[in-house]
């Protein structure tokens, strides 16, 4: 798999806004950014309303995913270009969903909304409607998803990559610094995890670093290329970004995202927790 198979540049995107069989999808945690201006023709997916189960802590099931994509006018044969704010975290999370549910052709817009805006490329606020489709999803590909028992079992056996900030890893902070710090779970990290903040995989403008830089980054942090890898963060969206870098860009084959992440692990009774850098 080459970089071009999973990532498109802003310049490519602008040239292909009206291309047949290409659907742009903005994924954000709240839709206010989309509503004030989005890439022309892009449909919106709301991370909270559209991708999470309304009651249980889990994400939409297969039928829910089919319903969502059908309503947005996305067909099984379409090439889906995902982008969003927050350095593409939620777009990367959605990318992971699309892969979990077996979508054939899905790519990320490198740099997401940030790069698009910093470049001064066009945004429009018009409502976008696409003809409804009948989307058919596959069963979840669980080779991409780690659950809590796998996270515990990975201690000392697999690469555990904690992609939170160093202060969250060491236990100084419980959440990223733009959020209030009161949380139910304990602070710290899963023993034997290496700490490679997601942000190290990205340039300042939100684009991914080169494959050479990425490989060097994880190698230097102690990632064993011969072992399987589980990536986690606080709720699984920053780690989707790193999962994308490790599996989709660098091509490591056995890489799972632990979407329960620290809000689950840090609340478990009886599991080992490490603090400090």
């Amino acid at each position: 798999m080459s970089r071009e198979d999973v990532l498109v540049t802003a310049a490519w995107a602008e040239e292909n806004l009206n291309a047949d069989g290409v659907v742009f999808v903005e994924v954000d945690e709240d839709a206010s950014a989309y509503d004030t201006g989005h890439i022309p023709g892009a449909v919106k997916v709301d991370w909270r309303q559209d991708l999470q189960d309304p009651v249980r802590r889990d994400f939409v099931d297969r039928a829910g995913f089919e319903k969502l994509l059908s309503a947005r006018g996305i067909g099984n044969d379409d090439t889906v270009i995902l982008y969003g704010g927050n350095n593409n975290w939620f777009a990367a999370y959605a990318y992971w969903y699309f892969k979990l549910y077996g979508h054939q052709s899905v790519k990320l817009l490198d740099g997401g909304r940030k790069k698009w805006e910093l470049d001064g490329r066009p945004l429009e606020a018009d409502a976008v409607t696409r003809a409804e489709t009948t989307y058919s999803a596959k069963e979840q590909d669980l080779t991409l998803r780690a659950f809590r028992d796998e996270a515990v079992a990975a201690i000392n056996t697999k690469n555990l990559v904690d992609v939170r900030s160093p202060d969250e890893f060491s236990g100084k902070l419980a959440a990223p610094a733009h959020l209030p710090q009161e949380q139910a779970q304990v602070k710290g990290h899963i023993p034997t995890a290496i700490n490679v903040p997601w942000s190290k995989a990205a340039n300042e403008d939100g684009t991914f670093k080169s494959n050479d830089e990425l490989r060097e980054l994880y190698k230097e942090a102690g990632l064993d290329e011969g072992k399987a890898t589980v990536a986690y963060c606080r709720i699984g969206e920053r780690s989707s970004h790193t999962w994308f870098a490790l599996r989709e860009l660098l091509g490591y084959s056995d890489v799972k995202n632990y979407d329960g992440s620290w809000t689950e692990y840090g609340s478990l009774v009886g599991v080992p927790v490490e603090v400090g850098a």
Binding site: W47, R48, R57, G85, F90, H178
Partner: peptide, 18 residues
């Protein structure tokens, strides 16, 4: 579950912040 996404910015502190 509150996500890690950045909340709306402004000068007034949210009511739940001490």
């Amino acid at each position: 579950m509150s996500s890690c996404g950045a909340p709306e910015q402004g000068t007034a502190l949210p009511a739940n912040i001490d």
